[in-house]
Design a protein around this nucleic acid. Sequence first.
DNA 1: TAGATCATTGCACTCCATGAAAAAATGCAC
DNA 2: GTGCATTTTTTCATGGAGTGCAATGATCTA
Lengths: 218, 218
Amino acid sequence: MEPMGLRERKKLATRRTLQHEALRLAIEHGSENVTVDDIAAAANVSTRTFFNYFSSKEEAIIGDGPPRPTADATAVFVANGPTGDLLDDLKHFILSPMLDLSAEELGYTFTDFLARKQLMLRESHLVTRMMATFAATEREVVAGVAARLGEEPEAIRPQIVAALGMTALRFALRHLHHHGDTAEGAGAEGARAAEIAELRDLLDEAFDALRQTFDTAR
Amino acid sequence: MEPMGLRERKKLATRRTLQHEALRLAIEHGSENVTVDDIAAAANVSTRTFFNYFSSKEEAIIGDGPPRPTADATAVFVANGPTGDLLDDLKHFILSPMLDLSAEELGYTFTDFLARKQLMLRESHLVTRMMATFAATEREVVAGVAARLGEEPEAIRPQIVAALGMTALRFALRHLHHHGDTAEGAGAEGARAAEIAELRDLLDEAFDALRQTFDTAR
DNA sequence: TAGATCATTGCACTCCATGAAAAAATGCAC
DNA sequence: GTGCATTTTTTCATGGAGTGCAATGATCTA
């Protein structure tokens, strides 16, 4: 990591604060009943500044979506790694960005993710917006699979394989439980570790079901 | 078909006109540069009336999405029909709503679909909105597959199988060519028939690739 | 400390979207 | 066809979303 200047750190903090307050207010009052002015006021910035960070109210509420695969993980996957089995490697590829997060980012990611999940249950129009952020990730997965298979991203096989992986990821995230983070420090870190472990298990389960489906359904 | 009264026919015509003008203007000037007032004016209705038909500008532009499976087709699919092979039947299930359309609706569907495809190439934010309409179809497919397999829609296998089918459909639609409909009447109907045939071929191709992927990649 | 750079802000403006009530069109009974 | 009920369209008012612009203020560089 390059050491950020004060400017950059402040910008990032403002962005996070806006996202956090947007989510909090949306959960508390329903997103329909929250104005951009409310969010900006809660974050102590002007309304105009809000739009310097996000191009719409919903963009702030739904967050940045799942973290993207790193260049390293992509390189490993494209080079037939780490195991050589397409589905196993795909699982690893999709899971990798979650594992690369620092503990701090991870806690942030999971906490807000679970809060958003709660919100989605009530406001289905946000679900479709949320899926759009998944689509961006899916495109990267398609590109990775295409490179590994030596095919074009427009070809059918990369798209199919990527769709399978993303379906598995969605399934896993949807079934993820909240491991109570009652306390700060070690307790919270333990909860995060448990969540990562559960995510891994759910992804295993999904990929197993996937193999099984194709063994029996052909 | 039940005979529609004048009222209903007019309403449908107004809806179609609004969709058509919205699409036309968006293609001509870019959707950013088209206001709801423009669309309403082009359709000879007031702005307020526009919002009696659509809840947003984009909703009019992106249209109603692919036609949904009929109750009949769903019943056949759930009862392990028509062939008993899951993938073959899924292909049939997904294709069925296209075949059930009257020639008139079909021409409308395809013509506007191809026009929208052109628009999507330029305006990617519409793509995500469009995908939301696919998600609605996907949920129905998930429900159908779940019923057939005797599982819950929340289970992983129905979701995987449905995701595969929808990926194949997206692939087929994305690769569909425009069969010049230069003239009215028989010529246009011939073009539509050719498009249906091509759609069927593309879907066959996609499902073949799907099987093959799983034979080799396991 | 001075000047360059970039972020924040207030202001004015357009467009989106909705509620309410008046006006117009349609359907129906006679 | 005439009159009445129903439904649709329209007009008007209102408030929030989102953007361009120019001024102000904070941070960076030297």
